[in-house]
Design a protein around this nucleic acid. Structure first.
Lengths: 154, 154
DNA sequence: TGCGATTAAATCGTGCGCGATATATATTGG
DNA sequence: CCAATATATATCGCGCACGATTTAATCGCA
């Protein structure tokens, strides 16, 4: 029965996601600035701190990004002296990304960033985890309905 | 007692926000493509459908964006024939953005997009509203702790 | 009244995201 | 073994975001 009011941005779930994401990046910015990292670069570094020497494709799989975004980003990390890029000997198509000593050392300097952000988010670890779970579920639903309903009749 | 494991992107709230936002934009893309709008352009149009003839600054306030982002975006909407830009007579500094007939008419063609996205999100309207609320709260906390804790000496 | 401070947009530079395409290597079927 | 196909990365173009600066109009106040 809700009259079809124009539904302004403020009413939309998508918009709350949009602004929350921007606010999150703004929260990270002053913390990453002394490291000389952008937020996406921080994600790549975090992935490498978890598992070093993986390929561009594997990083892309972890972050839901493709080479068109990652290649230049990773080259900037290389220029910054944090990683090296080497062609895999087993499969010359793949480029393996490996942390330098400086890249590994940066993990220490970044160690308390998550705690800082959690504090800024004003959530308990449990609340943060629940919200994270909801967002993961939402993300999966959205991606699922992307490929699904359009059977693409060749 | 949790050992300080490296905390990969997949564990982070910020990352779930990051990927959920991208998934949301991907969900909107095929819906907006026939309208020739990007997602941020859709937000601006939605704001105008709610209240026409507002200034660039008011749009920016609504969307948490500044003129450096909005000016070129709005010019593209003008080029597309959806809005017109006029200097306010009361305050020549302000630029008022007004829907054209085509811009107003587009509201009809966009009317069922929110329902489509809600369906894709696989959430009930109530669940979506709760999640939206959590995200708004999170966003406010993050913004609050941005200006707050750094008293900026001098 | 007039001049410094404030405000609104615009401009510039850099770094994502992502669709589209290109290139090189690997795999597979004949 | 070789040609078709598939896969991994790179390249290009465009449109955001956003810090920093510029320009123009308005305001405050002595």
């Amino acid at each position: 029965m809700s009259k079809d009011a124009p539904l302004t941005p403020a009413d939309m779930l998508c918009f709350s996601l949009y602004t929350a994401m921007h606010a999150m990046q703004s929260a990270y910015r002053p913390l990453l600035e002394p490291l000389g990292l952008t937020y996406p670069q921080y994600l790549v570094m975090s992935a490498l701190w978890g598992q070093d020497g993986i390929s561009v494709g594997q990083i892309g799989q972890a972050l839901h990004l493709d080479s068109n975004t990652l290649t230049p980003l990773i080259k900037r990390l290389e220029t910054a002296g944090l990683i090296t890029r080497t062609r895999s000997t087993a499969d010359e198509r793949q480029v393996l990304v490996t942390l330098t000593d400086a890249g590994r050392a940066m993990a220490q300097r970044a160690a308390d960033i998550p705690a800082c952000v959690l504090k800024a988010s004003d959530l308990t670890p449990m609340q943060a985890d629940i919200l994270r779970d909801r967002l993961v579920t939402l993300q999966k639903s959205l991606r699922a309905s992307a490929g699904g309903p359009a059977p693409k009749p060749r």
